[in-house]
Design a protein around this nucleic acid. Structure first.
Lengths: 110, 110
DNA sequence: GAACTCCTATTGACACTCTATATGTGGATA
DNA sequence: TATCCACATATAGAGTGTCAATAGGAGTTC
């Protein structure tokens, strides 16, 4: 599947992407950088993971895309949270809390 | 892939199995029940997920298996943590802590 | 105009989990 | 003793998500 430092938990990528877009619209690599930053390097999302996820999420209607210019004057596709995306972020955040708690407690019970 | 209540995060199943075996040797369905119990019903591991995982982990050398009789006097395959399994549990626990912390902090930063 | 960086994108492989199904056996009940 | 249910292991087949590797266009710099 992939070697240690990069490997993500299934479903976690969406959550991180949605969450990073709360700060405002961003282009793909910007999102990638933000995730790396905000998780202090724990998660490194490479293009082969990022773009399929973005396209999938656009299909789901959680994010919308439009072309624009990046900070460096390059053409870039920007992504923005939709209303449904905000809702989804809420759903997935709750899901994460529930799962995270369950596992942590399970591990402590030893 | 699967609907909400049961769905696991990738890589989490191994961790839960290893952890449940700390309590002592157990047969397959026993492990399944214990996971459900210890996570308060958050995770329900069905046979189709459990057994492939057990076989995989046996191949990896993290658990060892032997036939015996269950509480109900039925033939059952019991699993036990190996030394390598204990080590792996430690590794995966650390991994979980790291990931869990990173995501939680990322979510809080909004 | 050559080299370099930024940015999006795709492909092919692979691992994990899920649903569904199969098989065998012990115990209970009629 | 025939039937049925619960226990227990097992596999097939499908779907999905992530990864490594790679490609290519478009500015920027020298």
């Amino acid at each position: 599947m992939g070697s240690e430092p990069t490997m993500l938990l299934q479903g976690t990528l969406d959550l991180l992407i949605l969450n990073s877009l709360v700060a405002g619209e961003m282009h793909g690599l910007g999102i990638s950088r933000r995730i790396q930053q905000i998780t202090r390097g724990t998660f490194v999302v490479k293009p082969g993971s990022l773009f399929p996820a973005l396209h999938r999420m656009e299909d789901e209607g959680w994010i919308s895309a439009f072309w624009g210019d990046s900070e460096n004057n390059r053409r870039a596709k920007f992504y923005r949270l939709t209303k449904a995306g905000r809702k989804q972020l809420e759903v997935e955040t709750k899901r994460w809390d529930r799962i995270s708690l369950a596992i942590t407690q399970a591990l402590e019970a030893s």
